[in-house]
């Protein structure tokens, strides 16, 4: 229950951090909040040779509104700062609503936005919500800088497109589109535990109130956030009636996910939860989208 030895480096600038990452390659591990990494080190599931502590980089901790309605957040922004930010409440209400579900308040005081995303735990909330909100990530190395859309960032179990010399430095969320709605929910054995299944939906409706775009993202049911493409396709152009949403939720559970069985839940139970939670978030999200225009049929 104690970590193995490592060399500790605490760069004071991003450039210095990138140079260290480049010099140490696969041996180095970036230390953000450490709320997932340090437990893994305590269990010796992770034994990095070099730790690059990013906690002395205050320039990576910010929440900045963008002109036109979007926002940018530094990778080292603490989860508790996001939870209590008025800008987030206004510009990304789904992110605001998601935060209390992430572990416990003591963990969120230390845990970071970028750390959770780069860790890519398949049962984590922030990867799924960043996909649902159509976010994109700024990635830097000493060689170059690149932007990767959230839906192309997660490539497998605890695996992302990050190269060993790269750091995730910023998360950008676009402005909320017109006539949009959102909803987030999850089921866990105990509130704040790892989710057995979670669901995030971000939708838009057209001028007649029919489904325009549906982004339904499920988590804890695969190797990373899972987009329910089949369910979304069924809804396209349809009025989001109770029957249409039920059919889409059914499709999500049958065709869009392939959950596994573990000590906490069977695959069958997870499929059941996908159906129920998909129905709930879609109903709530379309309800919110319609509430923005009272002339729509209920």
């Amino acid at each position: 229950m104690k970590p193995s030895s490592f060399k500790y480096l605490a760069p004071g600038t991003i450039e210095e951090a990138l140079a260290i990452m480049a010099a140490h390659g696969y041996e180095a591990k970036a230390l953000a909040g450490g709320q997932s990494l340090i437990p893994m080190m305590n269990f010796r599931l992770a034994q990095p040779a070099v730790m690059v502590d990013l906690n002395n980089l205050p320039e990576l901790a910010y929440i900045r509104p963008e002109q036109g309605g979007g926002l940018r957040m530094g990778a080292m922004t603490r989860q508790s700062a996001i939870e209590h930010s008025a800008i987030i409440l206004e510009r990304a209400p789904m992110l605001h609503a998601t935060m209390p579900n992430i572990a416990y308040s003591q963990i969120r005081n230390r845990g970071t936005l970028g750390g959770s995303i780069a860790h890519a735990d398949p049962s984590a909330e922030l990867p799924a919500v960043s996909v649902a909100l159509d976010g994109r990530f700024r990635i830097r190395s000493h060689r170059k800088e690149r932007w990767v859309p959230a839906n192309a960032f997660f490539v497998g179990l605890f695996t992302t497109v990050l190269e060993p010399d790269e750091l995730l430095v910023e998360v950008e969320l676009p402005p909320m589109p017109r006539r949009c709605g959102w909803a987030f929910t999850e089921v866990a054995r105990r509130h704040h535990d790892f989710a057995l299944v979670g669901a995030a939906a971000a939708v838009t409706v057209d001028a007649r109130g029919a489904c325009e775009q549906t982004r339904l993202v499920l988590f804890s049911v695969g190797d990373g956030p899972v987009e329910a493409h089949q369910a979304a396709k069924m809804l396209a152009g349809q009025p989001p009636t109770l029957e249409a949403i039920r059919a889409a939720a059914e499709t999500a559970a049958r065709d869009d996910v392939d959950p596994g069985t573990d000590i906490n839940a069977t695959a069958e139970f997870r499929r059941h939860l996908v159906r129920v939670l998909s129905g709930r978030v879609l109903t709530q999200a379309f309800g919110r989208a319609h509430a923005q225009n009272s002339s729509f049929p209920a």
Binding site: G34, N42, A103, Q106, I107, N109
Partner: peptide, 24 residues
């Protein structure tokens, strides 16, 4: 527990409650 679940090691770090078992 030494993995962030039990809360017994909670201390104030710059005034904020954190798990002291999940920091070096």
């Amino acid at each position: 527990c030494e993995h962030g679940v039990c809360g017994a090691c909670t201390v104030l770090f710059d005034g904020q409650p954190v798990r002291s078992c999940l920091m070096f």
